[in-house]
Design a protein around this nucleic acid. Structure first.
Lengths: 128, 128
DNA sequence: CCTTGACCTTCCCCCCACTGGAACCCCTAT
DNA sequence: ATAGGGGTTCCAGTGGGGGGAAGGTCAAGG
């Protein structure tokens, strides 16, 4: 399979796949013409990466997860720990975003939103 | 006021304040020794920027908001519109994060997390 | 056989919003 | 005189790729 094919199947752009090769996440073979030649296993890894990234795992998380993915003697506890750490990050971000949301939402409610210059949003943001 | 002073008062790092000058958000005067010299107005703007950034506004949003902040003839509707757009971005991110959270949380629940290699997290991420 | 157009290659720069660090200057206290 | 804590500039790097140039390769159509 060429890069275009695995790109379509994995949902990753060709650019991204080349980047993943650069940083050592995948190691496709090369044809005599220099084209990357992906085998089933590499396609699985790329699909794995695509899903893991979509769940917010960092590249380094993905590297660790991929190592476990390929290690038949892994302990599922190791995978679960990484996933739980990521879940905590997500939960923290959710709290932060929810706070932003509430603050901004409140400010917006206070603002008349008309032709007059008086604006609680600006007033609050500039408060000393 | 020197940069250290406005940094402490605004909550922005000195590095960030220099960066904000670079990109034209603030324009402090200079002392004869070359030090930046901030006046009250600049401090207000920096505090404004600090708050707005904390609410997730981009630098370009901040630039627009600052222009409105300084424009005595603004219409509050213009401010409200920018804020509402930002609120929508935040709400979209909240939905995405919540979806990530639910998916990951479900996967974690399924995983035994013991010494055995069987792991629904890896299995699901690698599914074709 | 030639051309066309889709695909592939490497290379380098760009994005956001900073952060770190080097090398140097300035000011005050001891 | 020196030590230390300011300040200054400039260069490079972060994460996770994207855009686009300049060029090689391949299959199909005329």
């Amino acid at each position: 399979m060429n890069i275009g094919s695995v790109s379509a199947q994995s949902g990753l752009s060709a650019k991204t796949i080349r980047y993943y090769e650069d940083i050592g996440l995948v190691k496709p073979l090369r044809d005599t013409n220099g084209y990357r030649s992906f085998q089933e296993k590499e396609l699985h890894k790329l699909t794995f990466l695509s899903r893991a990234r979509a769940l917010g795992f960092t590249i380094e998380d993905c590297r660790a997860l991929l190592a476990l993915y390929e290690d038949e003697t892994r302990a599922s506890a190791d995978v679960k720990r990484i996933a739980q750490e990521q879940l905590q990050m997500i939960e923290k971000k959710l709290v932060d975003l929810q706070n932003m949301h509430d603050t901004l939402s409140h400010l917006i409610d206070e603002c008349a939103g008309d032709h007059r210059p008086d604006c609680p949003i600006l007033k609050d943001l500039g408060k000393v």
